[in-house]
Nucleic acid binder design. Sequence first.
DNA 1: CCTCCTCGTGGAATCGATTACACGGAGGAT
DNA 2: ATCCTCCGTGTAATCGATTCCACGAGGAGG
Lengths: 344, 344
Amino acid sequence: MAGIKDVAAEAGLSVATVSRVLNGHPSVSEDARRRVTDAVERLGYRPNAVARSLRTDQTRTLGLVISDVMNPYFTELARSVEEEARALGYSVIIGNADERPDLQDHHVTTLLDRRIDGLLVSPTDGGSPGMLGAARAGTPMVFVDRWIPGVDVPVVRSDGRAAVRDLVAHLHALGHRRLAIIAGPAATTTGRERVDAFREALAAHGLELPDAYIGQGDFQAGSGRRVTEGFLDLAEPPEVVFAADNLMALGALDAIRARGLRVPDDIGLAAFDDIPWFVHTDPPVTAIAQPTGELGRAAVRALVDRIEGRTGASVTLPARLVVRRSCGEPASPESPSPVRRSTP
Amino acid sequence: MAGIKDVAAEAGLSVATVSRVLNGHPSVSEDARRRVTDAVERLGYRPNAVARSLRTDQTRTLGLVISDVMNPYFTELARSVEEEARALGYSVIIGNADERPDLQDHHVTTLLDRRIDGLLVSPTDGGSPGMLGAARAGTPMVFVDRWIPGVDVPVVRSDGRAAVRDLVAHLHALGHRRLAIIAGPAATTTGRERVDAFREALAAHGLELPDAYIGQGDFQAGSGRRVTEGFLDLAEPPEVVFAADNLMALGALDAIRARGLRVPDDIGLAAFDDIPWFVHTDPPVTAIAQPTGELGRAAVRALVDRIEGRTGASVTLPARLVVRRSCGEPASPESPSPVRRSTP
DNA sequence: CCTCCTCGTGGAATCGATTACACGGAGGAT
DNA sequence: ATCCTCCGTGTAATCGATTCCACGAGGAGG
């Protein structure tokens, strides 16, 4: 492949001048500029990004370490991250941690070895050594969706508290009193937060959240199924199950269907994270929707701010409730709260 | 960040020896080896992959340019590609072309600029200039899922011909005669192939595929909706719609529901590409399942074979029909063909 | 006419690794 | 004792870019 030397030879100039033309440096004559661009054209020359990165100590690349690519929520996040990064002149390398701390660390170290300019992470657990090390070492970094308390890194996330309150109000208005939750891993912030918000919202209606109604999941479909089976085996099963992510909701749907039960008549279902498929499930699933695309874009902007020496602050965006039919039809036509209803 | 020189100083040896230890070169004394590993440990040294790549002219990185990350089929493909690559000691950089040739070219050139060792592509269209150039320039390359005829690059894909025959036999046995298809872009091989296979299978049953029953889609949900609306507006609408991918099936479901029609009573639906959500839609969707994970793994193996100087041949794996309820219940209890039935 | 700036350009150092080659010392063969 | 071989190690070239510094030409100002 042609190198900068070949271009210089072809243009009859030095590599220094060629480099200056390539980087839009002002002090180059119009004539030289033309000869260089012509030579580049003729040779089909493309600069070697590896060599350039070595010299300039920047790769114009962002690392994104995600908990689980197969989760549509994270897929959408990854997509918006890549879009915004591209708009800002950066590439993105995605690492899929699959909810495994060891894999997360593997990706973090690999990305650091490649000298990415900044790191976007939605941490799997309370903080793997490699990640903490990166944060301490001063690698520009931003947490997205989940974060690690006590680590001084901006967080871009959405606050589901209000939406969970809306959800509980909606369920309460529907007459449901025994509400259960399939929680995420206690080591993740989103895992804990959603349970807390749920419990709080319940309390506001004078309801309790007994331990039997808190199932421990891991954000994967399988755990949603297992936990739901446990709920259904209870002497007094819950009237509604709230899954803390969309994959566990899918598992819950599995378990319910396997028993020959029907949603919402026999048991209601709601989920955190809205996805296109929830419109088409049987029945359509009531869910809490995060502004996923906006989160991804905000995270990239915050990270690039840090990289380029600006401040790059934390961002929190509200989630909102999307009512569908999986918890039962409202008895009265009016909405239980100022909440948008999706088209059926 | 500590460099190899710092390690050499710390260990009281030359950079050459340090490098030899790091790369497991045999001719190093046990003593030197220990002193180096100790120094590495103390300094928390990690080799700079950028510098290493510049010198060795290999990045141990694969590029994967995918048509659409939001499509669960490609997500799963990407996941299996990354897994197999990791097992073989390679990283993967994913580029999302979003079914846009210009974006595809953007990613191909970016990846080439970064000097990736090999390229995995599922081409969006008949072949963008950058991609063709890469193939001609001798970049190790493998097509996955889709390919470009006339370009000498191994192809890893699945053959849906037999499964489509099974599907048509199934529909025919159910009594359906007016069968329509939502085709993919004619510029893609999968777009054309699926229509051809469908038409062929129809012919085997003495059925025709009139032009009015071929809708032109683009593998995105929106086109599935539009095409389906067209079908429903026909004086004699089809009894079953076969979508050439899962996203267009989702769109079809939208369109059908918007008219207040029911599947399968009013109209049947089948899709190419099976995904977990099809089990939970209303009703569960009959689909043709590709061995996605195996495709991704085979593609990586073929590509790495090429990179490392071995041959790396094309691979074709069969797809299979998964019968669910979206085309109607079989009148008689026996299966119409030797086909697996999924659990309801 | 001389001096001083500015501008365009080229030479060469540099980034952090790998690796060809040279070299010194130890040990075996003669 | 001499020579050869082999082994472990170090010196320096190299990969392909960027960029500091020096240099020469040409114009402005004295």
